Each structure stands twice: as C-alpha cells, then as structure tokens.
Simulated scan of single mutants.
Amino acid sequence: MFGLLGVVLTSALIIYFLKRRCFWRRGNERLEKIEAFIRTNGFHATKLYTYLDIKKMTNSFNNKIGEGGFGSVYRGKLPDGCPVAVKLLTNTKGNGEDFINEVGSISRTSHVNIVTLVGFCYHKKRALVYEFMPNGSLDKYIGNKGSQNKSCPLEWKTLYQIAIGIARGLEYLHRGCNTRIMHFDIKPDNILLDKDFTPKISDFGLAKLCKKEQGIVSLSACGVRGTIGYIAPEVIFGSIGNVSHKSDVYSYGMTVIDMVGVRENVNAAQTSDLYFPNWIYEHLEQGLDFNLEGIIDEEDKEMAMKMILVSLWCI
C-alpha cells in the first residue's frame, strides 16, 4: 500500500514540476519575443522603465482613472512633475502580441491627433506610459454617458473640430507613416481629449502594421478585431469584402454618428429590424428633423448635417 502511495505521490510531483517548467518556458518565450522586438526596432523616443519606476510614478497604483478588458489605467507623475497615464496590462494575449502591437505601432507615430507614448515597462509587469489627457475620453461627453458632464457640454463647433481631428489622425496612420497602421478599434472610448479638447487616437492593442502598398489584410492574419457597434462588417464576415484600412473608416463613421447624438433620439423598437444607418438615410430622404440637442443657430445645424452626411459616406 505504501509503495502504491509513493508511486502516486511521485507521479503527482513529476506532473507538477513539468507544468511549472512548461509555464516558465512559455513565460520566457514571451519575454524573449518582446526583447527581440525591442532590439530589432530600437525605440529612441520612448523610455524603458522598470516596474519599480512604474510603482513610484503611480504612487503604488493609488489613483485609478480607467479600466478595460486589457487591465487598468492609473494617473501618475514623472520625476520632473509631468503628469502621465499609466496603462497596466493584466490581460495580455498569446506571446504578448497586444503589447507588441501597441508599442510597435504607436512608437512609429508623431502627430497632434495621436496620443504620445512616453515609455513602457515589460519586466515583471507590462505597462505603457502615455501623456496625460485631462479631459478623458470622448465617450464621456456623448451618448448615454453625456449626463455625467452636463456641467461641461460640448458645443457643436467643438464636436465638429473633434471629428476633423480624428479624421486627420486616421489619415496620418493610413497614409502619413512610413508603415501603414490599421487601428481596428476606432470608437469614442479610444479617443482622448487634451485640455483644449484636441482629440488624440489611443489604444493600439489591436492595430496591425503593413507596407504602404499593401491595401488588403487577410482575415487569417488579423482575426476578428474591434468592438461590436463600430466594427466593420467585412472584419466579421469574410464573404462581404476585403479587410483594409477602410475598415477604420467605417468605424470612424459610426463614431461620428454617436457624436451627433442621433441614436439617442431613436426608439429602439423602430430600428430593431432595420440597420441603424439605413434609418438615418431614410430619415434624411424624407426631410425629417432629428431633434438634436444644442442646436442654437443655422451654423450649428449645418455642422450637424455635415457630420451626419460624412458618417454615412464613411459607412
């Protein structure tokens, strides 16, 4: 009996250590992949921080300002007093692909409408250090969340300029970089606003880099990426069409629709069996009013109509 017990215990120990070894090996492979990527690309404009640095700048993660499927965002401060936002990744995929995507894509950018990556950390914990955006994300000022910011409503002129800024940022990603960057997750949550409400595209975890002359991305290579409600149909259904940078344009169109606020004035029962942009198009054809909030003069009305038309063109 004791001999049988010994065999069982020995087998259990062997299985345990094999699992530990496998887990350790996978962890090392992920780390090696990230280090190889960093050596190959060389990030001169961004700083490499240790985990201790990250803890110090966030005061041991004392001030959480956001949370998502990737992890949490904390407010921090650099030694020179400059405020930053620290994105601590807790839910990373595969061999750190989302982390590599974000560092690799955003480190190639330099544009007023793209958030700046100050630095990153990949030892012990993976973290991304961004410039701090005092006005938070666009989703807080539009849609159902707008009630949280009634003390600071966005004028139509501001919304219009934000829409133009996002478009300029996307144009830069698609045509202005040496490497074309497809974001694949354009939505109000990923548009940050600085102190002057200048929009900056953020969150490049789902981004894909490709050569400028490469217009089409294979679905097998990129997989389904994006957020329901903003994701382009061809990204989900390969039979509809090819996935390209135009998939970001579709997401931009849906974002602008939400900025206008049309969706809030629609009875859900009216559109349950009808594609939402089709409802908008038919509404325009019939010359009906959308009853948008904040319209005070003809200039506001003209800007709102331009945004609606552009959103439909993009979709």
Rank of each mutant, 00 (worst) to 15 (best):
K64C: 06
K64A: 07
I65H: 08
G66K: 05
E67G: 11
G69L: 13
G69A: 12
F70I: 02
F70D: 02
F70G: 01
G71Y: 00
S72D: 07
S72P: 00
V73R: 00
V73Y: 00
Y74L: 00
R75W: 02
R75C: 09
G76N: 02
K77D: 00
K77M: 00
L78T: 11
L78A: 12
L78E: 06
P79Y: 06
P79Q: 13
P83V: 05
V84L: 04
V84W: 07
V84H: 08
V86G: 10
K87I: 05
L88T: 07
L88P: 02
L89Y: 05
L89D: 01
T90K: 08
N91F: 08
N91W: 06
T92D: 11
T92E: 12
K93L: 07
K93S: 06
K93P: 00
G94S: 11
G94Q: 00
G96P: 01
G96E: 00
F99G: 03
F99I: 00
I100Q: 04
E102G: 12
V103C: 08
V103N: 13
G104K: 12
S105M: 09
S105K: 10
S105V: 07
S107H: 06
S107C: 11
R108G: 12
T109Q: 08
T109K: 03
T109M: 04
T109F: 01
S110T: 15
V112R: 15
I114R: 10
V115N: 11
V115C: 10
L117P: 03
L117I: 09
V118C: 14
V118W: 14
G119L: 06
G119D: 06
G119C: 04
F120Q: 05
F120I: 05
F120C: 12
C121E: 07
Y122Q: 13
H123L: 14
K125H: 14
K125R: 15
K125N: 15
R126T: 11
R126M: 15
R126W: 13
A127W: 07
A127N: 09
L128W: 04
L128M: 04
Y130R: 04
Y130C: 02
Y130K: 02
E131I: 10
F132A: 10
F132T: 06
M133W: 12
P134D: 14
P134W: 12
